[in-house]
Design a protein around this nucleic acid. Structure first.
Lengths: 133, 133
DNA sequence: CTACTTTATTTCGCATGCGAAATAGCAGGA
DNA sequence: TCCTGCTATTTCGCATGCGAAATAAAGTAG
């Protein structure tokens, strides 16, 4: 009972934290997730990002079109499949990744403070479990 | 690094789970939190709910006005302080609480499956910690 | 009693995110 | 080829939720 509401509350708190530090870039927590994925997997499909984030296709579609409008990513048609869209970071996108990396590292330091490695492994295992319900 | 995104992903997953089972009531995860609080604390102020949920005042204001429009809660002016608004569950609101309780209990059973009591205590401690960042 | 500050709540504009339906291209068999 | 089903993505309408600013009522000096 309490776990559910603690999770929702923690998510709001973290999202506020990230958004408050997004600064002029306008990149929020969700956008950062997309950028990180693209930094590691260039030319990824929209569907790859959707799967990686565990979000809905429609949500990711909107998110990416906002990132495109902001000049962080560019879309290009897949040469082999005209339905699919490949994504690439712009130079501005790479900058935003670097900035976001610092923010997330900072946040992570707060989040892990006061917990042992083993406890954090348990927490992560639980979060992944909760994400697959 | 991974903890942050696992948390965001888990939250989306759980919200989808709850929303999918909200049924005709139209009560989502957030609304259920308000109703539970009111079930335990009748005549609570909007500010009390805000503090309990750890959300923003504006967000809770909107949430409550939707619940009011749906007929789940009624607002009444505080007799001692004309700025404050007291909240009360309607009969429909009480019904919705009962329904939501079942949904949340179900969800909790999934969430706790495969974890020991001690591990769950660690998880909850971490979630509370994350919520106070 | 007036002026300043604080507190409770709402309104506004925006971002995130969902499900359902639409669009469009692919792939496999009759 | 043409039909049928499947897949990738977008669009639409809506709920959630934030920060900033507005509103209104207390509270507090002086």
């Amino acid at each position: 009972m309490r776990l559910v509401f603690a999770l929702l509350s923690a998510e709001r708190s973290i999202r506020r934290w990230i958004d408050a530090r997004a600064g002029d870039s306008g990149i929020g927590a969700a956008g950062a997730g997309v950028l990180f994925h693209l930094a590691a997997h260039d030319d990824a499909l929209v569907g790859d990002v959707t799967a990686a984030l565990g979000a809905s296709a429609s949500g990711v579609s909107g998110l990416i079109s906002r990132l495109e409008k902001g000049g962080f990513v560019v879309k290009s048609p897949d040469p082999a499949d005209a339905r699919a869209v490949r994504l690439r970071l712009t130079p501005l996108g790479h900058e935003a990744v670097a900035t976001a990396r610092v923010v997330v590292r900072d946040l992570n330091a707060h989040l892990t403070d006061g917990f042992t490695e083993e406890e954090l492994r348990t927490v992560e295992r639980w979060l992944v479990h909760a994400g697959t319900i």
